[in-house]
Amino acid sequence: MSATPLLQCSGVSKSFAQVHALVNVDFEVRRGEVMALVGDNGAGKSTLIKCIAGIYPFDSGEVRFEDEVVHIHGPRESAALGIEVVYQDLALADNLDVVANMFLGRERTRSGYMLDEQSMENDARETLDSLSVTTLRSVRQAVGGLSGGQRQAVAVAKSVMWNSKLVILDEPTAALGVAQTRQVLELVKRLAERDLGVVIISHNLHDVFEVADRITVLRLGQQVAVLNREDTTQQDVVHAITAGTLTHVPGMQDTGAEVSE
C-alpha cells in the first residue's frame, strides 16, 4: 500500500436543483487499498461514484488522479484514466458468452474487421485465471446461465481487463448468498493485492469489515469520518452513519460559514 493517494477528491460538491447531494467532500483511495464507502440511503454514495465515473461533473472541488488534476467529462474519459465502475446491475448481456461480455464494445479484430475470437478467448481466460475464478465451466458459456456470484466475477474480471487502476464496486454482494458473497469478497481482496485501488460500496458492515482497509462514512452528503478498519468497530461505524458530526447545516444555502457544534 503506498501513501500517495491514487484518487484524491478535495472539497467536492454536487447539487441537483435545491438538493445538495455532496457538500465539500474529501475522499481518497490509495493503490492496493480497499476503501469502503458507507452511509445511509441518500447519503451521497452513488452521486460520489457517478461523479468520479464522469456520469455527471462535480460542481466544485478538485479531483486528482495519480497526482494530476483531472476533469472527467464522461464515462469514456474516466475509462481512459483507468477508472472502471461495476454497477449493481452488472450490465451484462445474458445472451452473449463470457468472452463476448468481457470484450463488449472493445472487441479485438483481425486484419481490421473480423472478430479475433481466439485472442479474446485466451485473454479472457487469463484474466479469469489470474483472479482465481474457478467456478466457470466454460468461457463460451452464455452469461445468462451463470449464478449471481459467477456473474459478479465476470463483471469484475471485465473491469480489470483494461489496465484499470481504480475499480469501483457498487453493492457487489447485495443479491448474493453466503457462499457467493465469500467468493466475491475474496475477489475484491485479490484486486487490491494486484495493487489496484478498490472502492466498495456496501450496506453490509460485516462484508465491509472483512475486506476494507479503510472506511469512508458519508452522511447527508457530507463526509463525517474516515476510519481505519483495524482501529474501529462496527458500532463506531454505525454511529458515524446515523449520527456523524455534520459541518454544514443541511437544507440551508451553504455560504461557507461553518456551524459550530
Binding site: P75, R76, Y87, D89, A91, L92, A93, D94, N95, L96, A100, N101, L104, G105, R106, E107, T109, Y113, M114, L115
Partner: peptide, 23 residues
C-alpha cells in the same frame, strides 16, 4: 464474425449494457 453483428446481439440481449459498453 463482425463487431457490428456482435453489437446487434448485445443490443438484443441488454441494450443498457450495450450502451454502457460504448456501443
Amino acid at each position: 464474425k463482425l463487431r457490428f453483428g456482435r453489437h446487434v446481439y448485445a443490443i438484443g440481449g441488454n441494450p443498457e449494457a450495450a450502451r454502457r459498453a460504448g456501443i
